[in-house]
Write a protein that binds this DNA or RNA. Structure first.
Lengths: 337, 337
DNA sequence: GAAGCTTATGTTACCCGTGCCATTCGTAAC
DNA sequence: GTTACGAATGGCACGGGTAACATAAGCTTC
């Protein structure tokens, strides 16, 4: 970068202090709403600051007090575009509300070294807290170190010693989806799961198993995708070849798109031949054919909740938004035989 | 094992300097890859840094040199989830490559005041550059001030005096899509455009008009959505009632989902009755029914290109990735009458 | 061998809020 | 009247890199 980012020199607290006829310290106190400032003095300071277009500068504070008012957010680059965006928006909104900025670190793939690197990078930036929205495949010593030193929340349910955990109850989502299919009259429910490293995926699968077990049904083997529609398509091709399959619980909407495409190509229509329930309720779920019956996840809120948990804003702790079933047209009673 | 490794105190450059028997300045030079450092000295410094687990601290640099090695990214919260994620990923990857961090600011909606607030916030953080990925509805003085002081790139084509502009040629996308429909034999092409504030939307519309004009066809009035599938659905309901409509160019995949749903509900099938071409090639475009013919946009690359432009990494300037037509099954020849 | 240049390294001031302590003043308590 | 105390404010050192300048060698060149 040839052109150094030469900002015209901004006024400092000292400038404001001079203009207001007080000391820099008083300016600092005024701007931080310290109680011991005379109302008249405060007014003079604020006027001067306004006059000079004074902009607060966080860097020295980070130097002297160690607080940056920045939160770090770790995301996975591939897949789950919708949920990623929504979580980000929720985090950023809640953080902004509390006067914090958000610095992001995206992982090209799930890899311990990359994760370490991202955490180090955030740590180097002096972030006051970290939100990890990807699964921790394996926790290294260095990761432990960082998450012990910096308050951390993981929103996918994996944990280190230090990190607190926030998660929508994914068992519930799995049970809800499966039960809906059983209620419709299906005798068996198949499952296309997410990657086993993701706790969300594991919990949804467990919820599915529990629900089947409660109904006295032996669960068939689960198929595993990677959240992408393409992986759903591949697993769907397999399921399409099994005549007994009449109901499938797919662990994400995006994979469900792929499953439906595969079924259609094999001449099995949804929901007449096969019913599908998935999870997420992405925006497009209502606009595909057939519109997806799905368990809604409120990603925006969980992002916001993660921030609240991190900053201690929300003393209630885990006020998790419940997953709710949205019934559309991808589910129906099985064809009577 | 020194006391510096105890919790709390991070070692500073001075600590490293002491351990390596050099001055702090030499440590600084070594870590910044300054050329004027003896190989032997460099080794000693790096060894000492390694030994002490030295972590670089960016705050003082921001103080003394005004450089934060952080870039700001302004995004719109709603809609366009896919493109937003992809742009973010591209920006973050390219920035990370160059040693920069990315700080995000999401706008709840397109609003001048919110935009100003976001820019101010980024400016306060001392970002070295800003990437604006939303349209500037109207440019205020304060926005001008900030974008003059801080290098800025807008990726949607809108501009301030200071900002440089990076944009995929959206005229071309509009022409390509429209021409494809004309080539298939359609005599008229309708259009569902994006919001007029977005330069992308305007350019796509212009491309469509130009293409029709070149073929000697009077363009019908364009309908306008807001990028959301829901808005596509509403406009689709209107188009479905017009018997002569046989071909529609939709300004985004997500709106196309809505248009197709509306057409289907009115008994008009795609592509037998109506052909659809859209823009973006989001991941799900290939997995809906019918799979969308669409003009691919490489958001990831444009995010990366924005960073390159900002940092001057890419001297070629605007090395824009071309938009390319992906033909799937939402287009066909019109029914012969 | 002295001037002139390059390379390697050190010294010092500075960036700008904030923590800590000192100071002043007014007032309540004894 | 003197002590005690809180409120309001100022003074100053500090944090950890970095720019700018200074210094000390090593090497050319005539």
């Amino acid at each position: 970068m040839t052109e150094a980012t030469m900002r015209g020199k901004q006024p400092s607290m000292a400038d404001v202090a001079r203009a207001a006829g007080v000391s820099a310290q008083t300016v600092s106190r005024t701007l931080r709403d310290s109680p011991n400032v005379n109302a008249e003095t405060r007014r003079r300071v604020l006027d001067a600051a306004e006059q000079l277009r004074y902009r607060y500068n966080g860097a020295p504070r980070l130097l002297s007090s160690g607080r940056s008012f920045t939160l770090g957010l770790v995301l996975l680059q591939a897949g789950g575009y919708y949920s990623r965006s929504a979580v980000t928006a929720g985090v950023e909104a809640a953080a902004g509300q509390a006067g914090y900025s958000v610095s992001i670190a995206t992982l090209a793939e799930l890899d311990t070294a990359l994760m370490e690197k991202s955490l180090l990078k955030l740590s180097d930036q002096g972030v006051d807290g970290i939100i990890i929205a990807v699964p921790l495949i394996s926790v290294t010593q260095r990761m432990e170190d960082i998450t012990r030193d910096i308050p951390t929340v993981t929103v996918d349910g994996s944990r280190t010693t230090g990190a607190r955990v926030l998660g929508i109850d994914q068992h519930e989502a799995g049970r809800t989806a499966t039960q809906h299919l059983l209620d419709a009259g299906h005798r068996q429910v198949w499952h296309v799961a997410g990657p086993d490293e993701w706790i969300e995926a594991r919990q949804r699968r467990q919820g599915w198993q529990e629900c089947l077990a409660a109904a006295g049904i032996d669960a068939p083997p689960a198929l595993e995708g990677d959240w992408s529609p393409e992986s759903g398509y591949r697993q769907g091709q397999i399921l399409a070849m099994i005549p007994e399959v009449t109901a499938i619980f797919v662990a994400s909407d995006e994979m469900a798109f792929g499953v439906i495409k595969a079924l259609r190509e094999r001449g099995r229509s949804v929901p007449q031949d096969v019913s599908i329930v998935s999870v997420d309720d992405i925006e497009l779920a209502a606009y595909c054919h057939p519109p997806l019956t799905t368990v809604r996840q409120d990603f925006y809120s969980s992002g916001a909740a993660a921030v609240a948990l991190l900053l201690g804003t929300d003393p209630d702790g885990e006020s998790l938004t419940q997953a709710s079933l949205i019934v559309r047209e991808s589910t129906a009673a099985p064809r009577s035989r």
